[in-house]
């Protein structure tokens, strides 16, 4: 009797599924559109066509922006991973009061509204000469992505037994050696999911991008933004489909790793 799900539980599940469909459908509609056989944004008329996917590779505008995005996201992920884990490990070793200060600082970029941050970068970069440079964009991405690394590495450290470090040191291992051979391998799942989240944050960031870049740095989200404004090229649907796919692969990998680690 008690085991049978109640009416209300079923109702909540149904509503949850409906909300999910409502949220997902508009996004998923780009998938059939990306296979259209016509030259404007539409559903396929007669056959499925891969012509627009081919354009992604042949059209230098799409190809270059894709490569630029991949480069910027990879570099930003690496930097955010380094900074975020260093901050998390540092905070983990600190006393309670200092720890909360570092925590606050590390999570600050999540609290500041994106548009405020974008304006701030714009004003600052004018003076620093960083507008429309890769350095400038990467800095904004690293700042945005670091809190995600900090959170996931902190969570992993929460399950890490400090005595393992003590054990290694009692056997004669220097602190850096302990970090490389004991601490980092033990919190690897946290590092990986932090890196995946950092990559996703960097991969589809648009708002700050619009403020700090023009033509020199031309990342994928920017190309899509211009594409949807300037013309109705269905290639944009292909890009969108690919982005959904990449994000999905990242998230599934992260979930799978978290699950495997949990067992």
């Amino acid at each position: 009797m008690i085991i049978t799900p109640s009416f209300w539980f079923r109702a909540v599940v149904v509503i949850a599924i409906m909300v999910m469909v409502y949220l997902f459908l508009p996004a998923l509609i780009v998938i059939p559109i990306s296979f259209t056989d016509r030259y404007y944004l539409s559903l396929p008329a007669k056959t499925l066509s891969f012509a627009h996917y081919a354009a992604l590779v042949t059209n230098p505008m799409w190809r270059d922006s894709f490569l630029q995005s991949a480069m910027v996201s990879s570099v930003s992920t690496l930097l955010a991973l380094t900074l975020g884990s260093a901050a998390a490990i540092g905070a983990w070793k600190m006393g309670t009061r200092l720890k909360s200060v570092v925590r606050m600082m590390a999570l600050m970029p999540l609290i500041v509204p994106t548009i405020v941050g974008a304006l701030a970068y714009y004003r600052l970069y004018i003076h620093l000469g960083l507008l429309d440079t890769f350095t400038g964009v990467i800095i904004t991405h690293v700042v945005a992505a670091t809190p995600f690394v900090f959170i996931s590495v902190s969570a992993a450290l929460g399950n890490f037994d400090e005595r393992l470090e003590h054990a290694a040191r009692s056997m004669g291992a220097r602190p850096l050696h302990v970090l490389a051979r004991i601490t980092l391998p033990c919190i690897r799942p946290g590092l990986i999911s932090g890196a995946i989240f950092a990559f996703i944050v960097s991969w589809d960031e648009l708002v700050v991008l619009l403020f700090v870049t023009t033509r020199n740095v031309y990342l994928l989200p920017r190309a899509m933004w211009d594409g949807i404004n300037d013309n109705v090229d269905p290639t944009i649907a292909c890009v969108a489909t690919l982005m959904i796919l990449i994000t999905l692969v990242c998230l599934c990998t992260e979930r799978w790793l978290a699950h495997r680690n949990g067992n």
Binding site: R163, H166, A167, R169, I182
Partner: peptide
């Protein structure tokens, strides 16, 4: 420093390195 004292230590809860095999644990020091 602890690493320079050269003592052995056995902890409450063992503190074995979970990502290493038994053999790797013993080889570590």
């Amino acid at each position: 420093l602890p690493e320079d004292r050269g003592f052995g230590m056995v902890f409450q809860g063992y503190a074995l390195f979970p990502h290493m095999t038994v053999e790797q644990n013993v080889k570590f020091p």
